[in-house]
Design a protein around this nucleic acid. Structure first.
Lengths: 298, 298
DNA sequence: CACTTTTTCGTAAATTAACTACATTAAAGA
DNA sequence: TCTTTAATGTAGTTAATTTACGAAAAAGTG
């Protein structure tokens, strides 16, 4: 049995022309189906061909090709090619994005990269920029920022620490529940905690959020919408990621959370103004001597 | 002064038609520049217009438009429209993906997500699937896997550890040079080290790679092409990421490296066969009781 | 089963768009 | 100022797409 071991439901966010052809295959007439099959087998050829060449390839007449295009809600053949070209540009030559048992390295590499990109696209659309803005507000006013994450999210927290450390802000990062709890007890009104959790259902982390709020600290969570963690936070930046349901390891959510960190960091530097960014330059220069010089001609 | 504070150099990995027009603006003749400006201001209109309409909009003759298309290495006007359509499809309605001083939360959120997606796309195209395949070969035969990363790459190494730990393989992870060096001394022929470095020029890490090889360990590096680290490794999985040159923090490279981890992990599970994936299921079930139950209707 | 109706499909003509060749104009250099 | 070269437009040619119509096939109907 060949099982799809991880899948991303692409249909959720984009009804690509190529897919449209695939799904409507049964609704087409006999001749139109011939056209559809020629296009599906070599879409790259199709977009560069004239209506005459395509008709000959499908062994139908030119008007049939034209009617086929119109049936797909396009103005005509040139317009159809435009739509098709856009589908292809998105790097989805496959209709299905499942990784299968018998996929080769080339195939699964592409599929995973494409799934990741798709997940980021979905995440982007689900994020509320106003939440980002409020989060930046809170972060800029923080006296100390703590980043917390457990399991797969611990690396996300580490990354956030690394980033904000360069901003010359007091930062800490914990991936250990006991340390988190201790840290919460000592938190003050000027403390800001940023908690990362894909599900927002990790009991220990929700408890940490509650503890922190009892110490009057601000709690920002980067997590799922309507989750217990989101409810327990001062501000929830909710991210919807189409996580691969069959795979047993979270993949796409980390990427989305890391990108949210980048967005927050960007908002942070913008808020602080140009003078502040000189700091970053100095930090970067400080690491330079630990590196091998890059050849000048590159 | 409104400065672009971080930019992604798109030109490196994709000469997007829209950018090509933008950058070559000065090389065009007077009339051609008129055409360029019309296209840049409303590319969406341009792809649906005929050569006659476009000529009228730019207030030039039709052959001028045609010559303009040819100058951009296309076969003619229809071919040009195809290329332009593909540029637009990649989610780049803007010509520039720079974050500006005066960008609002909505704007910079979108720009950063799009840059990240673009970076993943570039990375995907630059990766050699055969290198991935060899890396999977080496990893599946490892007696022990060590993940090393310094600075911004340390969170990448942590993530890799988290992922491979679930595979029930002996894994360690260090983000500290001294520990890395000690670990290298004790390495054996069955040891596999995976080193992450965006630049591949961090002196300490290159030295670690050399030490490990002296102990007959296998060294896989996820890094830049033709870098000192790549040369010092048994196998280099090279990833080209268009890193933002003006920003002082690496952003896109982590995402690309994390995705490479996902790809390697996928290859690993595929190689191990379906029976092996039961392990993953059990690991996942083991964490379940630490979570709040999700409502059934969701 | 014959006949009607509807759908499908192709031929040929018409229209539209794109391209080429050439002439004219503008710009640059001598 | 004249010559040369590059740039642009006009008009004509060619190619491509679309429309109109009619034949054939399929699906109903008495």
């Amino acid at each position: 049995m060949i099982a799809a071991i991880f899948s991303v439901n692409w249909a959720i966010y984009r009804m690509n022309t190529l897919e449209k052809i695939q799904t409507n295959l049964s609704n087409f007439s006999k001749s139109e189906r011939k056209v559809a099959e020629v296009i599906l087998t070599s879409p790259q050829t199709a977009i560069h061909a004239s209506i005459a060449t395509l008709a000959k390839m499908a062994d139908v007449s030119e008007p049939t090709v034209n009617r086929f295009c119109r049936r797909l809600d396009t103005k005509g053949f040139p317009d159809f090619k435009l739509h098709l070209a856009q589908s292809l540009a998105n790097g989805t030559p496959y209709v299905s994005r499942h990784v299968d048992e018998d996929d080769g390295p080339d195939s699964y590499t592409n599929k995973i990269f494409e799934s990741s990109m798709a997940a980021l696209d979905a995440a982007r659309q689900s994020i509320d920029p106003m939440a980002i803005n409020r989060a930046v507000d809170i972060l800029t006013q923080a006296q100390q920022i703590s980043f917390f994450g457990l399991g797969a999210s611990s690396s996300v927290a580490h990354d956030a620490q690394n980033k904000f450390f360069r901003f010359n802000v007091p930062v800490v990062c914990f991936d250990d529940v006991l340390m988190m709890r201790m840290s919460c007890i000592n938190a003050t009104a000027g403390s800001v905690l940023v908690l990362f959790s894909h599900t927002g259902r990790t009991k220990a982390l929700v408890e940490v959020a509650r503890l922190a709020r009892e110490s009057n600290a601000q709690v920002i969570s980067i997590t799922a919408k309507d989750s217990p963690l989101a409810r327990e936070s001062t501000l929830a930046v909710t991210v919807e990621v189409p996580e691969d349901t069959d795979m047993f390891i979270p993949m796409a959510s980390r990427l989305a959370h890391l990108t949210v960190i980048d967005v927050l960091a960007t908002g942070f530097t913008l808020r602080r103004g140009p003078r502040f960014r000189d700091n970053l330059k100095r930090v970067k220069e400080a690491i330079r001597e630990s590196r091998f010089e890059k050849p000048a001609n590159l």
